[in-house]
Design a protein around this nucleic acid. Sequence first.
DNA 1: CGTAGGATTGACCCGACTCAAGTTAAGTGG
DNA 2: CCACTTAACTTGAGTCGGGTCAATCCTACG
Lengths: 255, 255
Amino acid sequence: MGAESVKDKVVRSARKYPCHQCPLMRLETFRRPKDAELDYLNSFKKGELTVDRGATIIAEGARSPHLYTILEGWAFRFKLLPDGRRQIVNFAVPGDLLGLQGALMEEMQHSVEALSPMTLCVFERSELINLFHAFPELGYDVTWLASREECMLDENLLSVGRRSAIERLAYLVAFITERAERVGLFNGTKTIPITQQHIADTLGLSLVHTNKTVRRLANQKLLRWRDRGCEVLDLESLKAIAGWEGEDVKARPYL
Amino acid sequence: MGAESVKDKVVRSARKYPCHQCPLMRLETFRRPKDAELDYLNSFKKGELTVDRGATIIAEGARSPHLYTILEGWAFRFKLLPDGRRQIVNFAVPGDLLGLQGALMEEMQHSVEALSPMTLCVFERSELINLFHAFPELGYDVTWLASREECMLDENLLSVGRRSAIERLAYLVAFITERAERVGLFNGTKTIPITQQHIADTLGLSLVHTNKTVRRLANQKLLRWRDRGCEVLDLESLKAIAGWEGEDVKARPYL
DNA sequence: CGTAGGATTGACCCGACTCAAGTTAAGTGG
DNA sequence: CCACTTAACTTGAGTCGGGTCAATCCTACG
């Protein structure tokens, strides 16, 4: 539940970030593209999209002509069953690609909604094949991103299928925290702008049981719930509960 | 790299299937590659691998120098928790790519095991980038395959997270049946070479409960369990129970 | 003919679900 | 600045789907 028809408060603005000054490049998480690649990307980029929290960026079943990359903000990807049951399949943070499926297959098989105000780079899906021709290395990077998404989904599936409620929650929070930290989404406190309904729909649990599980972790002082967000207090302990296996982090590409 | 030109399409290697005679090409499911692409693929292919049921093709944590494509047979991808709990994340049939993650990231994050005797094409992971340079269209196809896998994972996640046991089972069986049919894995009866333990580990259920759920569908004559396999009797009814939403099927690429 | 992997079943239990009723906090209009 | 509204968080009570334990039964195969 919780998926209502959202009035999109979409604003198209003049471009704030030419690719050469892309704020993401400053982060060490990202591989720095070559100049020629940057020039190409800059022409590949068609504009910027700014949306508010709650806006639908991509709708299941739609055939959007666009492809996006997140510059700022948080989002989540989800699917719905005909009767309204919702499953969040993953979250998205700056540097992530959105809408690749739409570019390759016929129509989108999932929706994407903003968790916070966001800024996205807009590309033309029909031009994607040109990118593969002009810069094979960038094409390779797109594949890399798709493969990484697959990897995250495998892990989420493992969680939902085989971990207990508390393990799932600990894993999810640790997972999101790691990703967010890597792309500089936190300033000061590590607070994830999410509701317990989102958590429930991600973990495959009911809202009530999710709340009780959150309380358990909160009582142990591993996290704290504050106005519409989850503040992480003890990442290491969360990882321990989740049975986190140290993961390597390499410089990643981005569009 | 890959400099060996293929002027004559006659084969003298032990190889049973030169790409030009790839049996998969005959299926209408697959897009027919151009001659130049076929020539390239044939040089990209380094050999064939034949394994028995139960063989491990890829091991979690390993750094295999190979990349595979399935020519014949069934397999499944899975992950393990430290204490042994297993989650099967997806199945693989002819035409599917295995080990892409290993080619792009450091090491494999999941294992792959054969469900039946199999034949696979073997490629060199280090040469993958060359393929992107030589034939951008093929690189695009690799991305397409990765994106399709992502799509299937989303759907599996929806199943495990939000569907009831019987819906999950009906969905899974219908899903595998559709895929297998499309690549000609059935001859005569539609029988999936799988044990109930595999089903349980895919759906996130216990073996006992899986068995009881299987019995329910069997009593309704929608499927039948016979020596180590699941025979599908009424695909349409299974889809109805699963709340299957008609999916479009387009000609797909393959390596 | 014995063994082992896989399928079944019954008995009993618990984690997670639903229903129902608050409580808080953040807006919003007057 | 205060009443009203609404989204989101809490909590208790009772129920149930699915889990665990423990036999038992097949049946292919050495």
